[in-house]
Write a protein that binds this DNA or RNA. Structure first.
Length: 490
RNA sequence: GGCCCCAUGGUCUAGUGGUUAGGACGCCGCCCUCUCAAGGCGGUAGCACGGGUUCGAGUCCCGUUGGGGCUACCA
């Protein structure tokens, strides 16, 4: 499949700001961005805010933030003028007016005086049953006298495109191949509403032409609209860009992914402690694959590896579990400096302060290395790190019953405390030797000491290896917490 | 209803006429082990169905079934 002239690649992502950045939209943006970066082309961001009812400024801000977070920078768009602006459809009326004028001058538009109510009534009147549901063409051949009369009635008119009543429109899609649509099923659709505003199909075409878009990469939900857009390109006598319709992302019930399926916005995942590396990598695999074994890609690697040729045709079910696995993977692999940076706000929010100086930093890195193989997101990581700090550690109630309030535990904690008080230096090796030695002396299994100590010091029944934990928690905090636990032990 | 798209394990997918149908997530088991992870090893599970074409179909064609999308003066 011909992929077009790569030296002039200009692609766009055109979200409508009526909500947050959805993972489906993010995936579309990612594919466009990757395609542009790989081809050395331009990635353009256009805000389709013609629906004034639903569009909000907060939504625009949230979408920009999430795209930036994912690393999808735009060459042209809000805040980045590239000579094809403005980049908000609500500010582009003059273009739509001009294009409508061109169409009108060519005699390809006609005013339609039917009201929405009348149209609906007529559609219902056809009885449904295998009948054409589009416009019935009532106003298509109105005489000037008819128009004067209708206008005298106070009717306003929308402008419809004269669609050929025979023949077919062929879409050569980069992913679907050749798709044919009979013109007769399209009907004369509205291009300019009675209030003068352009309809979606018209605005998109006008914008894509004006912005010099070379490749339109978008969701498959737009495939059925494509022939209408083709008709507009043809009516305008303009060359069409290359089209590629990528498969939709579905929820577990195999319907288009939406809010009712749970967390579906990029922002939600970000706030839940997901890292952009994981989200981008996971999203890249929804509808695209590299080969039969490689799935791990950094964003720069994706730029090298991505191609439209390897985009799949089947819809993909979004699997939060696999996203979580990717997140765990990147949490484990990320350089500590980066991990630290990402964690910073979460640590601050919890009032956890990393000790100053190089020793403090090194200590913190050791804590992170201990914890990170065990968590799936930044929130967990921050939360689990709390007991390494001089913070109050609540004792998990179930663990308290199971391991602390048991016969003889108080005595064992006390014995361990005394032994630990004399360990020098207070490091993993020495601690282990002391505790194992004590267990042997008391004729206990090591676990009989380890489990109560873990509960006492971390407040939890699970943690990284106890000896490493104690060494990092430090003698002072360790002894304090043992004392406190001994008070409630059996 | 009409039009369009899609169909490999539960999920994401590799596969482009001849493969023991490969990988990943999940799940199960084993190893490691002070708990929990991580890691290593092993396992579970798949070509929707029916017709063709062909010496030979997961791969090509037709149909059926199933799923999805679009059918607005929404985007």
């Amino acid at each position: 499949m011909e992929v077009g002239n790569t030296t002039t690649v200009r692609v766009r992502f055109a979200p409508s700001p009526s909500g947050y950045l959805h993972v489906g939209g993010a995936r579309t943006a990612l594919f466009n961005w990757l395609f542009a970066r790989r081809a050395g082309g331009r990635f353009i961001l256009r805000i389709e805010d013609t629906d004034q009812q639903r569009s909000t400024g907060e939504s625009v801000a949230a979408i920009l933030e999430d795209l930036a977070w994912l690393g999808l920078d735009w060459d042209e768009g809000p805040g980045a003028d590239g000579g094809h602006g403005p980049y908000f459809q609500s500010q582009r009326s003059e273009f739509y007016r001009r294009y409508a004028g061109l169409l009108g001058d060519a005699g390809l538009l006609y005013p339609c005086y039917c009201t929405p109510e009348e149209l609906e009534a007529r559609r219902a009147g056809t009885g449904g049953e295998g009948k054409f549901q589009g416009y019935d063409g009532r106003c298509r051949e109105l005489t000037p006298a008819d128009r004067v009369r209708l206008e005298a009635e106070g009717r306003t008119s929308a402008l419809r495109l004269r669609v050929p009543t025979s023949g077919k429109t062929v879409v050569d899609d980069g992913i679907r191949g050749r798709v044919e649509f009979a013109n007769e099923i399209m009907g004369d659709f509205v291009v300019v509403r009675a209030d003068g505003s352009p309809t979606y199909n018209f605005a998109v075409v006008a914008d894509d032409i004006e912005m010099g878009i070379s490749h339109v990469i978008r969701g498959e939900d737009h495939l059925s609209n494509t022939p209408r857009q083709f008709l507009i390109y043809e009516a305008l006598g303009r060359a069409k860009p290359f089209f590629a319709h990528i498969p939709l992302i579905l929820g577990p019930d195999r319907t288009r992914l939406s809010k009712r399926h749970g967390a579906t916005s990029v922002g939600q995942y970000r706030e839940a402690g997901f890292v952009q590396e994981a989200v981008a990598n996971y999203l890249s695999l929804l509808g695209w694959s590299y080969d039969d074994r490689r799935e791990l890609f950094t964003v720069p690697e994706l730029v090298q590896a991505f191609s439209l040729e390897r985009v799949s045709r089947n819809p993909a079910v979004f699997d939060p579990g696999k996203l979580e696995w990717f997140n765990g993977h990147y949490l484990r692999e990320l350089p500590l400096e980066i991990l630290e940076e990402r964690l910073d706000p979460l640590m601050k929010r919890r009032g956890l302060t990393i000790p100053a100086g190089p020793d403090g930093r090194e200590w913190y890195h050791r804590v992170l290395n201990l914890l990170r193989p065990r968590v799936h997101n930044l929130e967990e990581l921050a939360a689990d790190s709390a007991y390494f700090f001089p913070a109050e550690v609540p004792l998990d109630p179930a663990g308290l019953e199971k391991v602390i309030r048991k016969e003889g535990v108080a005595a064992r904690l006390t014995a361990a405390r005394e032994r630990l008080a004399g360990v020098e230096p207070f490091n993993q090796e020495e601690i282990e030797e002391a505790i194992r030695g004590l267990a042997a002396e008391l004729n206990l299994k090591a676990g009989d000491l380890i489990h109560p100590l873990r509960m006492a010091v971390t407040g939890k029944t699970v943690s990284p290896g106890l000896f490493e934990v104690l060494a990092l928690v430090g003698r002072e905090l360790t002894l304090d917490r043992i004392d406190r636990a001994a008070c409630v032990a059996g």
